[in-house]
Design a protein around this nucleic acid. Sequence first.
DNA 1: CTAAATGCAAACTATTTGCAACGAT
DNA 2: ATCGTTGCAAATAGTTTGCATTTAG
Lengths: 120, 120
Amino acid sequence: MTKQRKIIKDIIYASYKHPTAEEIFELAKKKMPSIAVGTVYRNLTLLVESGEVRKIDVPNAPSRYDRPQIPHEHLICKNCGVVKDVMIDGLMPILKEKTGEDIVEYKLALYYVCDKCKNL
Amino acid sequence: MTKQRKIIKDIIYASYKHPTAEEIFELAKKKMPSIAVGTVYRNLTLLVESGEVRKIDVPNAPSRYDRPQIPHEHLICKNCGVVKDVMIDGLMPILKEKTGEDIVEYKLALYYVCDKCKNL
DNA sequence: CTAAATGCAAACTATTTGCAACGAT
DNA sequence: ATCGTTGCAAATAGTTTGCATTTAG
């Protein structure tokens, strides 16, 4: 585990904002100004592969990164793009039953309007 | 409705392969060699907005396009990437209930291994 | 006639990669 | 000394856009 890998992991674990690679890069530069974007992406890939970090695929927007807590889904505000965690368990059996197929994985993006945007 | 828009729409409606923009472009060139990629993308956006075509977001892969039949989900083969339609209804109320939020839209990508790939 | 749409090419965004130099074991 | 990792810059994939020209209504 290199210094840059640790910085990247720490940023993700310390953040509740589901940062994008770009945001992680900006935060990492504050700790280590010489760090390169390529390094951030390479380490994100490695951390995701090792299971230390979870990748959130956001359709038509940069991916976000999260710590791998208890499995949960992501609510994305249609208006401002903010991501909120939400627990949904027992979805896999429902999907398998409804499709009749042996689903090995699913990616779910839920869209809503967050409270802040609702009150605008 | 321009000639190129009609060609693009017809390709999608005639295909059972959920083509990507690139594939649509290649097929369209056979009907009209002068057509430009930009035109394909612009028309796809328009057709999706008008509801005549449905866009399938595929994480880490080009988007695919589909005719807007009865709402259905998409099974993506983890191995070869082929997309198969599958009916799942009554999912929205389950998601609303499980999250306790007013979900306005969801995008679900289901991964499996298709029969062809299973037999390799 | 004129607003909308086109072809072309350049631009853009998110991400990946080749390579020489670096660093930890 | 070695092998993984870095910084840098260039490359890539998918898509979007500016602009002068063409076309549909």
